[in-house]
């Protein structure tokens, strides 16, 4: 089962997509989402972002969270 990935703000704009899905290979119990996303989207290596899994801000995903939504959240500064 896959996880949906939602992109926000400038990251969605730079990637040209607001969501996608990924299949995570849980060779270890906790997988670092940041590494995973940057491997899939090298453009993000130069960008600052936070990660949320099932609406909780954190970096790692466990196999129990398969199917949950992953959100990629860049900072905004405009006002």
């Amino acid at each position: 089962m896959e996880n949906e990935v939602q992109f926000y703000g400038m990251i969605a704009e730079k990637l040209g997509i607001s969501k996608t899905s990924i299949l995570i290979d849980f060779k270890v119990e906790d997988v670092n989402v940041r590494d995973l996303i940057m491997d899939s989207y090298p453009l993000l290596k130069a960008m600052t972002f936070q990660i949320a899994i099932n609406n909780v801000i954190k970096e790692n995903i466990s196999s129990a969270e398969v199917g949950e939504i992953i959100a990629i959240l860049p900072p905004f500064a405009g006002g």
Binding site: M10, M47, Q50, P75, G78
Partner: peptide, 15 residues
């Protein structure tokens, strides 16, 4: 706690 330090220049924009 949300964003630890200044974002990279690639991540910045304003109105």
């Amino acid at each position: 706690c949300l964003f630890k330090d200044f974002p990279s220049s690639e991540s910045t924009a304003d109105c």
